[in-house]
Nucleic acid binder design. Sequence first.
DNA 1: GAGTCGATCTCGTGT
DNA 2: ACACGAGGTCGACTC
Lengths: 227, 227
Amino acid sequence: MIATCSVNYSGRLNAQLPMAKRLLMVKADGGVLIHSDGGSYKPLNWMSPPARMKVSEPDEQQSEAGITEVWTVSAEKSDDTLRILIAEVEHDSSHELGVDPGLIKDGVESDLQRLLAEQIERLGDGHSLIRREHPTPIGPVDILAKGPSGHVAVELKRRGDIDGVEQLTRYLDLLNRDPLLAPVEGIFAAQQIKPQARTLAEDRGIRCVVLDYDEMRGVDDAESRLF
Amino acid sequence: MIATCSVNYSGRLNAQLPMAKRLLMVKADGGVLIHSDGGSYKPLNWMSPPARMKVSEPDEQQSEAGITEVWTVSAEKSDDTLRILIAEVEHDSSHELGVDPGLIKDGVESDLQRLLAEQIERLGDGHSLIRREHPTPIGPVDILAKGPSGHVAVELKRRGDIDGVEQLTRYLDLLNRDPLLAPVEGIFAAQQIKPQARTLAEDRGIRCVVLDYDEMRGVDDAESRLF
DNA sequence: GAGTCGATCTCGTGT
DNA sequence: ACACGAGGTCGACTC
């Protein structure tokens, strides 16, 4: 539906949209999206499913202001509410879409992890893989390997941020308490490492490795072709 | 537009959507969204603006498979590409929306910070505000105050998670090196504090304070009305 | 069900 | 322009 409307959200925060022409979308599960004619995929305002919508008549004051319909959208799991005042409707249509077969992805962190595990020498000479997703009480270590001078714990990110360094630091604290593993060296590996993250990491004696995904995938493809 | 289509994204990762009926939305700035009839506000697939779209004829093989149009959407700033194969079109319409007046929000972290600064006694008796956003080399401390037994650094969150405790710990380490400030006590203040975050905080001698935003806003409104 | 973590994150803000 | 932090984050996965 394309309509001139104003929107008021009340829930975890309060937000208002003044009257303007926008696109309104109501999904089969009750979700509602309000989009403008620009910006990225995030709607100006929305209601997450499951939700219920009630259409009612405008009161006298609203009618005078040109409102023709009032939509009240309520979340079923919380008391979040969306109140949409609709003035002029430019377009309205409804369609059955059916269930979507879903999305197939490739190239996310798990792929990077698989590739690095296969090409563990990218950490430096003399490294061998022990295991991926090595479990610890505070979560799995992305890659655990044997280096030339002891064990190596690798934290892997697509974008290396300060959070990743903190995460790796927690793992290292824990792993170094294990006499069977200590000493454990830390490596922060990412496609891109932010300067602040690099500074923090090196300050803590953690080595930083920048990975080239395309190059690693290229090597992977070349290896696959051998079989 | 409502159409049966398949979608292929290639860019920072590769993703595919098999042929199915979906909603296609092309915005004025070139952004494209592909929505199914369920899920939250995130589209199944999309192209962020600015982007350019080229419509072309299907080749022979595609025609035989029932494809009637081929859309190629390219980002202007990168080499991300969306290839949309359109089979049956159920609905197609186009509308001018104009520029949106924008969203007004209330109840985010900055509001909480303002309210806590005004109602600093919520930290406990004998507290007085020194300053908000106290600058340090690793970022601003949300609130710095004077407590009954030294200085107090407050980290403020809407939802108190383990990350916030880490952040506050870094600030405390730094502030306690300043002889003019030390000793600095830490307070982790949030509308909701996760059990794990509370445990970590208390383990590090950081006090946790749960804030009631509605109550604080109520007090604020009451104060405003005096003037 | 709750917690954790990644994301084609998006979006604001400040330097 | 870039960097950082917050999000009504969403969504996938584990425990």
